[in-house]
Amino acid sequence: MSKPTLLLIDDEERIVRSLRMLFFSGYNVHTTTDPQEAIRILREERVHVIVSDQRMPVMQGSELLGIARDISPATMRILLTGYSDLDASIASVNEGEVFRYLLKPWDAMEVKKVVAEAAAIAEASFDVQSHTNTQSVVERKKPRVLIMDQDETTAKTVHDTLGDRCEIVWASDAQHAMEELAKQDVSVVVSDLVLGETNVGYILKTIKQINPQTQCIVVTSFNDTSRLIELINQAQITRFLPKPVSKGVLARNLESMLERFHILHRQPALQNRQTVAPISDPKEKIQAGNFIGLLGRLRARIGA
């Protein structure tokens, strides 16, 4: 098997020199300080993984990764940045749809591990692309949408947008949400980060472990960059919409996430593209463990 191809972009050439050295033995490495050059390489070559800085002259990393998504959807996108501002991290979710948001200074072993994981996933994605599955899935069960938000306007927008096309469940507390998730798999989750007093980050982080197809839209007025970065890496949330969110924006994103769900449903091989990193927070780890335990018990009871 030939070496996977890695594309590294940073406006500081010392960064790319350093990273090249880290990867050159295992990968076919391209480096550049110019986003335009990066776009050219993406067009001309099959790139498994692209690792980009966020703050660059001419173009932000999230924007470049958004373009990369259009040119080469199978390429795995990673952001490596020393600047963790909220706008950048939101853009990296919504535009760049990044696999990981990594911070400088990085841990060499960790970055190596993440890139290796991403390269393997990309390889599988390229395979899926070349063996296009022509059999369309006829059976289309009504998708299920779970709203985890006390805000009535969110629930109303979801109802207005999806109407009868989906089964819509509205949970306004964590317990209810977990019970609904246990009953049956969910296609799309629209969630705030806090329900009443409860921080529901751990639920979002666990959802992908229960059902990797589930697409997660976060709508919240809560804005903490480091929490968001955690949610990118550990929950692979696919949209982050700051409240107040306009009806049109939420509706548009609901549609595209529903579509994304269908694609993953048809092509389970692509699910790995949203593989989550392990939960890092010790408290959330325990909460997630309890949730999975509860889930097992509830499902056993429902099944019985």
Binding site: E12, R14, I15, R17, S18, L19, M21, L22, L80, G82, Y83, L103, K104, P105, W106, A108
Partner: peptide
């Protein structure tokens, strides 16, 4: 963080 990134990696 930028210089720290490559110095540490190097």
């Amino acid at each position: 963080n930028t210089p720290l990134g490559y110095v540490q990696n190097n």
